[in-house]
Amino acid sequence: MTKQEALFTYLLRLADDRLILGHRLSEWCGHGPVLEEDIALANMALDNIGHATSLLTYAAEVEDKGRNEDQLAFFRDVREYTNIKLVELPKGDFGFTIARQFLFSTFAMLHYEALKDCADPQLKGMTAKALKEYRYHHRHSKQWIIRLGDGTKESHERIQKSINDLWMYTNELFFMNEVDEVLISEKIAVNLEKLRSDWQKLVEETLKEATLEIPDYKQYMQQGGRNGIHTEHLGYLLGEMQQLPRMYPEAQW
């Protein structure tokens, strides 16, 4: 695998996670539990989608096959999407969305902190900019986890269930293969396994503060997303997201 191929796939993984998560967050627009949270979730949707756009633009440039960011976003099918399954699951209730935001943004924050010495200046610049956003996403979701966990009996039970249900999707955050090996040797990527203990520490600290139980790490863990094997939910999401550009490929807006 060449460095170029590896970098293209790496950028696609980062972008796909964020584009799909951004889409899921955007589904809250007009449906938030209160006006203030509605705006907060829409903001975070836009953070993710905006960052995904930059990543896809750069991915298209690296690929150098005449595709652009829109073609990568709207004209790839389920099997070509490389996001982890965690981000494609339906938005669920507010607690489920918050639990996913917490698990994902904690990882994204650590990942981007680790990329501060990335040897690819463009990726380094983009991730440094987005790091501030993920720090905020982390802070926002962490505060909610604490309030829901240490809140009422019902909020405690529901947020615990969401954490439990999402747990088996978290191992995929640390997925690595040849792509990572090639880029680690180029000092572009980082060893995600090294982030695992920090992620566990941050997650466990907050769960404890929220009086929540830490699920079992040794349970069955989902995989496949990075290789294009997804849950049934991604197809419906892409159907909605891609419908307009596929019906009107030349549409400008």
Partner: peptide, 20 residues
């Protein structure tokens, strides 16, 4: 103004509503 359950959430909401 805005609604929030406590001070930290009020700050976060203020950031999202008035300084995005």
């Amino acid at each position: 103004n805005l609604h929030a359950p406590d001070a930290e959430m009020a700050l976060q909401n203020a950031r999202d509503v008035y300084s995005r």
